[in-house]
Simulated assay, not measured.
Amino acid sequence: MSEPVPYERMRISDADREAVAGRLRHAQGEGRLTLGEFDERVRLVWASRTYGELAAVTADLPDLATQSPVPAVPAPARRPRRFFRAVLGVYLFAVLINLVIWGLVSVTELEPAYPWFLWVAGPPGVVVLTLHLLGRTPPDGR
Rank of each mutant, 00 (worst) to 15 (best):
W116D: 08
G29V: 02
D63K: 09
T34N: 05
L129S: 10
L110T: 12
L33C: 05
R82E: 07
G22D: 12
Y91P: 05
E111H: 14
R49Q: 14
R79N: 03
A113R: 12
L35V: 09
V73Q: 14
G89W: 02
P123F: 12
V70Y: 01
R136E: 11
L131I: 10
D39F: 02
F84E: 01
T66S: 13
L35G: 12
W46M: 08
S13V: 00
D60S: 13
P80Y: 00
T58L: 03
A15E: 13
I12Y: 02
W46Q: 07
D60P: 00
F84I: 01
P74H: 07
P4N: 08
R85W: 10
L33Q: 02
M10F: 00
P115A: 11
V107L: 14
V87T: 10
W119N: 10
H132K: 07
F83W: 13
G122M: 08
G89T: 09
T137N: 11
R17W: 01
L61F: 06
W119M: 10
W46R: 15
F117Y: 11
A19T: 08
T34Q: 04
A72Q: 10
P123R: 07
V87I: 13
H26K: 12
D14A: 05
E111A: 15
G31D: 06
V100Q: 08
P123E: 03
Y51I: 00
F93H: 01
P138D: 15
M10G: 03
R43T: 13
G36R: 12
L129G: 11
D63M: 03
L35N: 08
S68I: 05
V45F: 02
A59I: 05
L131W: 05
E3C: 01
D16A: 13
Q28A: 15
W119K: 01
V20A: 01
D16C: 03
R81D: 14
R25V: 02
S2Y: 04
M1S: 14
N98G: 07
L99K: 00
N98A: 14
Y7P: 00
A121R: 05
V20Y: 01
H132Q: 09
A65C: 00
I12F: 02
A55K: 07
S106F: 04
E18W: 01
R79G: 08
R136S: 09
G141F: 02
P6E: 10
P123H: 06
M1H: 11
G135P: 04
R41W: 01
I12M: 06
D60K: 08
R49P: 00
P80E: 07
V95I: 11
S2F: 07
A65Y: 09
R49T: 09
L24A: 06
I12V: 15
S68Q: 13
D14I: 03
P80A: 14
A27R: 02
L96T: 15
R43S: 10
S106R: 05
W116R: 11
A77F: 10
G135F: 01
R79Q: 13
L96F: 13
G103A: 15
P112R: 13
A86M: 09
R82A: 13
R43D: 13
L118Y: 11
Q67C: 00
T130Q: 01
L61D: 04
W46C: 00
V126I: 15
A47F: 02
S106L: 04
V45C: 06
S13G: 05
H132S: 06
L110P: 00
P69Q: 11
P139L: 09
